[in-house]
Design a protein around this nucleic acid. Structure first.
Length: 161
DNA sequence: TAGATTTGACCCCG
DNA sequence: CGGGGTCAAATCTA
């Protein structure tokens, strides 16, 4: 079970993903379930590192809304290393995601009645609060960032062709 | 009892 | 058609 991020989430689904040995869990804001706060959270355990949780925040929070100016897109991709006592949060901002931002042009129009409310996949602004601060005890005390072993692609940088 | 969680079925997108 | 994501009904716990 991944650490708390400062908000309440209600698990609404769990499916096994191909390519991963562990199922993915889907969470939604415990509040405004089907009203406005369509903030969602996706937790997937790495297959080669069961001690790390890949937390992906989707949508936008419409409940609390603190500071944090919607200037830049906050880290929605987070890696939580539960190997240590302190949670190592590594903001893995995927460049692809940044470009995948769908323009929430006013009339987002719902594509289907099932999809629910409007709003495309990703919103324009991210009124997210300092989740890192909301974390349990953000590994700030000890600078143990041994996340070097995180994401170790099978690419051997020995020689280059 | 109510809210949350679980598991499966259904639906949508690629 | 398949994978991925969501919802809904049943069940459990507080």
């Amino acid at each position: 079970m991944p650490p708390e991020d400062g908000f309440t989430w209600r698990k609404y689904g769990q499916k096994e993903i191909l390519g991963s040995k562990y199922p993915r869990s889907y969470y939604r804001c415990t509040h405004q379930k089907l009203y406005e706060c369509q903030a969602k959270k996706m937790v997937q355990r790495l297959d080669h590192n069961a001690n790390i949780f890949e937390v992906t925040y989707r949508g936008k929070h419409t409940c609390h809304m603190s500071s944090t100016a919607p200037s830049s897109v906050p880290p929605e991709h987070i890696l939580v290393d539960i190997t240590q006592n302190t949670n190592t949060i590594s903001s893995q901002l995927s460049p692809s995601v940044n470009l995948t931002l769908h323009p929430a042009s006013g009339t987002a129009a719902t594509t289907s009645a099932r999809g629910g409310a409007s709003t495309s996949r990703y919103g324009g602004d991210y009124p997210v609060v300092d989740m890192a601060d909301a974390m349990f005890n953000s590994g700030s005390s000890s600078g143990n960032n041994s996340m070097e072993f995180l994401f170790s692609p099978t690419e051997d940088k020995s020689d280059a062709n």
